[in-house]
Amino acid sequence: MSSQKKVTKRELRQVFWRSFALQGAFNYERMQNLGYAYAMIPVIKKLYEKHDDQVKALNRHLEIFNTTPAVSTTIMGISAAMEEQNANDSNFDSNSINAVKASLMGPLAGIGDSLFWGTFRIIAAGIGVSLATQGNIFGPILFLILYNIPHLFLRIAGLRMGYRVGVNSLERIQKEGLMEKIMSMTTTVGLLVVGGMVATMLNITTPLEFDMNGAKVVVQDIFDQILPNALPLLGTFIVYGLMKRKVSITKLTLGIIVAGIFLHWIGLL
């Protein structure tokens, strides 16, 4: 019998670098499939020598795939571990490789989107923007650093963990509810930061004032005494409400431009 086939650090490092190009050939039919297959090529080459086996493996990874790029390496690690098993064990069901990919890409995308888009990016951008609005050129640099530390860490750690512990660990994590705990913790921080940004980064005030028996009443001062930043808060919830009613982003954006000009013209804003 042939000796055990094994994926080494070398291939995993190649998968890591190739994973960055995941969406390079994004298409509407099978989305990130070509990028995924491209990332798996070093593993396929290492594990399979026979032409037929290589064809089968390439076809497997050209199937539809779509997830948050940051978590893709975790799934690639698992795929590498399963391909390795498949190469060594003729009884291994190769269909399970894609079944696992398909079952992981949705849940991991949900977590990845909320972690990276919803939380890390927002915190990093919040800090970067607050510096940048003071004209500080380190705003953009700090933004990139703060975001990419957890991002690159997960790419490396996810690939390693995915390869080493394979499918089982993810199932265990899901059963123990660890995913939900991580999600609830990051959503907490994300919402706190978004709330803070609504208060500090929206410059919406009214110049409205009127005379009341000779006393000048400045409407903005009243707002500031009752609830500072009441107008930004109100504006955010109006737009959020419209979004919930499925008004499209483009319509909302154009609507706001028109509304801004109109409200300024009648003197409300």
Binding site: I122, I204, I256, H264
Partner: peptide, 26 residues
Amino acid sequence: TILGGLKVAGNLLPVVGFALLMDMLF
């Protein structure tokens, strides 16, 4: 007047970004 209005619109527009984030987290 239009330019002033555009300035106001510019201040209002970030609301869309925040509302999108709320849609995700809230």
